[in-house]
Design a protein around this nucleic acid. Structure first.
Lengths: 255, 255
DNA sequence: GTGTTGAGTTTGATTGATCAAATGAAATCG
DNA sequence: CGATTTCATTTGATCAATCAAACTCAACAC
């Protein structure tokens, strides 16, 4: 149906629509926000003219609603497709890390390619093999066929006060460098951490992941970690992060 | 480097160069044969003009040697790339069948897409997970980094005489229908068979796979099975068909 | 209100892969 | 040998995705 380029625009559009603008803006989060042409061309890495052309094409295909000189927003059909791409991406990413033992810092880029060529059959097989997981290695929720699961009540590490004990549930930066840094310091999803100390003057905090040495991180970096504190921890039903790593099922002899 | 279209041309070209023209032509098999433009456009499913254009491009890129109105043949560089594509294809195919339990009749088509987006890193991981196998689910040899393994001394089922006992080592038709037929009748790689009877008048033979009912197959169909008989069976060193299906290795905790 | 600026849109060109139709070369047949 | 058939090449067009550069708004400045 949609070309892989269109799939990429759809995915990016969904992510932009649901991006948190300012930490705690609060305004209408779960309904998709309008996205400006500038944002889209910026994050797709193409010139503005290209974006205009592509967005028009998507509008013609019924995947987006486009208001010239104002912005763009996915239609229901567009969102459905976008979520399907995102589902493929995140399942593949988890698969690469869990089954093929690919470094999670590389998995994102690998999945970027694979997400466009995975058939429904293969996707289903991967989902089954992983035990129908609900989050990828970074803690990002995996959309089901039905849609994106509701945002779990997690808070931002940058907004916590000293002494807080929490568990990392999600990491909001997929870049290779950042993930490498995060893993090396024990700042991975499901890790228990304590906020040892805050130094507002320096704009930094000292975080102590259990079993690792304390790390000093800037508030900007801290803002990339979503955590679940004692108080919010009751509602962990919807978000059991990653499938137990019992990878297997003897493949049935045929079929 | 090479676009996925070029990769497909390279792969196809290699297969055509090494295809057995007539059963038992005998002439220069292991060095690649010349391929006519007609054969290539036919098997790529494109018009002749397209083939001319693409072959010229490949020649310019140093991947093929092209003699107008005569034919085309891979250069060393082209062959190397072609074998790399083939390696990806066959490893992925085996992976789909062994690990993801995808029906082998569908695996070929799935692999057709995946072969172009598998990175070296992922390929290595798959190879390791499968235990460095030397043949795919159809018994087709998997090229190593070094090149295509030598052709094992297998014979063609269509040329055997009645009473012969043998083991199927390779199936030369990847079409969904054929593979479905083959599996349903127990005619799979590593299956032991006996040639019960031959009826040259009808151009057919009765084959008896161990543990299955005897099947009557036309000689044309029989020609699609490569077998190893008692006599040729000594040299099975180079061709242990498929990895044991001990699919696993507990993935290491991180990375 | 005329000018400047910044964001967005148009236009024209390019690239890779393809086709359809016209043309050309080679081989075979009578 | 000349005619016909087969196979291959050229040519011109198309489609998707892109860029660079020119153009157009709308808003704000003074």
């Amino acid at each position: 149906m949609a070309s892989r380029t269109i799939e990429n625009y759809l995915k990016q559009l969904w992510l932009l629509e649901h991006a948190v603008r300012k930490p705690t803006s609060g305004a209408g989060r779960s309904t998709g926000n309008f996205v400006t042409m500038g944002q889209l061309s910026e994050s797709m890495g193409v010139t503005p003219g290209t974006t205009t052309t592509m967005v028009k094409a998507m509008a013609d295909a019924g995947l987006a609603r486009y208001t010239p000189r104002a912005g763009v927003r996915l239609t229901r059909a567009g969102e459905k497709l976008a979520l399907h791409v995102l589902r493929r991406h995140r399942l593949v990413e988890l698969f690469l890390v869990e089954i093929l033992a690919i470094d999670w810092a590389h998995a994102h880029e690998e999945a970027e390619e694979l997400e466009h060529v995975i058939s429904d059959t293969v996707l289903l097989a991967i989902d089954r093999l992983l035990g129908h997981p609900s989050a990828d290695p970074h803690g990002d929720p995996i959309p089901s066929e039905a849609g994106m699961p509701e945002i779990q009540n997690a808070s931002n590490l940058a907004e916590m006060k000293g002494g807080t004990e929490a568990v990392i549930v999600r990491i909001m930066d997929q870049s290779r460098e950042f993930l490498t840094f995060a893993r090396q310091n024990g700042l991975v999803p499901r890790a228990a951490i304590t906020i040892a100390h805050i130094n507002p003057g320096a704009g930094a905090m000292l975080v102590h992941p259990r079993g690792h040495s304390p790390v000093s991180v800037s508030l900007a970096v801290a803002a990339k970690f979503m955590i679940s504190t004692k108080s919010t921890e009751e509602s962990k039903t919807a978000h059991r992060p990653v499938a137990k790593r019992r990878a297997h099922r003897k493949p049935s002899p045929d079929a």
